[in-house]
Amino acid sequence: MDYTSIFTLMRAEVTLTAILVFVFLYDLMAGERARRRFSAVVCCLMVVQVVVNLVPAAGGELFGGMFCHTPMDGIVKSMLSVGALIVFMQSDTWLRREDTRHKQGEFYILTLSTLLGMYFMIGAGNFLLFFIGLELASVPMACLVAFDKYKRYSAEAGAKYILCALFSSGLMLYGISFLYGTTGTLYF
Rank of each mutant, 00 (worst) to 15 (best):
G170W: 10
T114E: 14
T111R: 03
Q90S: 14
L129V: 10
L110S: 10
F88Y: 11
F178L: 12
V48E: 04
G64N: 04
S113M: 15
M118D: 00
I109Q: 06
G170P: 10
L115N: 02
I132H: 05
L110H: 08
L115G: 00
A124W: 00
A155Y: 12
A157E: 05
A157C: 08
G181F: 01
M121A: 07
I109F: 09
G158Y: 03
G175M: 07
E61A: 14
A84H: 02
M66P: 02
F107M: 00
I109G: 07
L110F: 07
V51H: 06
A157F: 04
I132K: 04
K160T: 06
Q104E: 14
L115D: 01
G65Q: 03
G65I: 01
M172E: 05
L129T: 08
L85Q: 06
G83M: 05
F131C: 12
A165C: 11
L179M: 15
E156R: 08
G181P: 03
F167R: 07
L144C: 10
V76D: 02
M118H: 02
N126T: 09
F130C: 06
Y119H: 10
V48I: 15
T93V: 14
T93F: 12
I162E: 00
S177E: 04
H102A: 14
Y180A: 09
K149F: 11
T111P: 00
F131W: 12
L129E: 03
E98W: 05
K77I: 13
L171N: 08
V139T: 08
G64V: 05
P140M: 03
G133W: 02
R97S: 15
H102K: 15
L166M: 15
T185N: 08
I132S: 04
L171M: 15
S81I: 04
M72C: 14
Y150P: 04
V145K: 04
G117P: 09
H102T: 14
I176P: 03
V139D: 01
G83I: 08
N126K: 09
Y150S: 13
F167D: 09
M118S: 11
S138F: 04
D73P: 06
E98Q: 13
L116S: 05
F120D: 01
L128Q: 11
L128Y: 08
Y180R: 11
G64M: 12
F63K: 07
